[in-house]
């Protein structure tokens, strides 16, 4: 078993608890154990918080990293926004003495010290990594293949971009999440401008909802074109934007899409035989039933 401190963030535990439940259960079936990271906070939101003062963003994210350092475990997480904060701040502080000293001066007030002793991973990259899990192991863990479904992937922004501060390589036409989707028995489909943002980030969802939804709407048009049965992502904030966003798009622009949106963990949970109830899929704003009917 590979053990990680499980950093939850906000939206997974507080809006889509099925993302959290499925992460814990699906990872166990492929040899990954997620341990609770007690007392963790918001990452904090890189757009909303970092925009005001990057120094406070560094310090707040570092506090979360230190909690995992105290457990002597690497962090695994399931949200791109959290990845931006936790991965990137950890990375920056490891390589920038000036910023690290600044952060430690603040953390000293709460008896903490950032050491730079752990690494941060997105659970999806651990699933893809053959040294930890790998696509084959994911395939072997499937008991209810998603045969006959067409699934589109939204990668989101903050997992892989900016490219030179990450390790994923190509950010124009990545295919590794499609490989994971195909391992579940589904057919991954391509669509126009796949790497475009969901529209939620940078505080824009809160600052100008219509502007933000207009970006989402462009994605929805491109997704509709290829007849996907569902959209999968690896970020609960993107999920919220697509899922609740579709309801808001209908209210504001009068367009209805009805495209089910599922976090990759939820999809993997279904493929491993978890029931919709075990995933709290009833909390999704867009009815997931049409997709479930194809696989159950």
């Amino acid at each position: 078993m590979h053990e990680y401190a499980f950093f939850l963030g906000c939206i997974a535990p507080n809006r889509y608890p099925g993302c959290e439940a499925s992460a814990i259960k699906t990872s166990e079936k492929v040899g990954i154990k997620l341990l609770p990271l007690c007392g963790a906070s918001c990452c904090p939101a890189p757009g909303a918080f970092g925009s005001i003062d990057l120094n406070i963003w560094y310090a707040m994210a570092a506090r979360n990293v230190v909690l995992a350092e105290q457990m002597d475990r690497d962090i695994a997480l399931i949200c791109n926004g959290c990845y931006k904060s936790i991965y990137e701040v950890n990375h920056i502080l490891k390589h920038n003495d000036e910023l690290r000293d600044g952060v430690n001066e603040v953390l000293k007030e709460i008896d903490m010290e950032y050491k730079g002793s752990i690494d941060v991973w997105h659970l999806a990259e651990l699933y893809y990594d053959p040294k930890i899990c790998g696509v084959d192991k994911i395939r072997e863990s499937v008991s209810r293949p998603l045969t006959g479904t067409k699934i589109a992937v939204h990668y989101g922004c903050h997992l892989m971009k900016p490219r030179k501060e990450r390790h994923f390589g190509d950010t124009d036409h990545p295919m590794w999440i499609e490989e994971l989707v195909a391992a579940l028995g589904a057919e991954p489909v391509q669509y126009r401008n796949k790497m475009q943002c969901c529209g939620a980030g940078g505080g824009v969802r809160g600052f100008d909802l219509e502007h933000s939804l207009d970006i989402t709407n462009e994605k929805m048009i491109n997704l509709q074109e290829v007849g996907a049965d569902a959209l999968t992502e690896v970020c609960p904030f993107c999920q919220l934007q697509y899922d609740r966003g579709q309801v808001e798009i209908e209210e504001k622009f009068g367009i209805k899409y009805g495209l089910p949106v599922l976090h990759f963990n939820e999809l993997l949970g279904l493929a491993q035989g978890m029931s919709p109830d075990e995933l709290a899929l009833d909390l999704h704003a867009v009815d997931v039933t049409p997709f479930l009917e194809k696989i159950l």
Partner: peptide, 10 residues
């Protein structure tokens, strides 16, 4: 405040 911080430009 309209940048979504998507990092495409970067």
């Amino acid at each position: 405040w309209l940048c979504t911080t998507c990092y495409s430009c970067t």
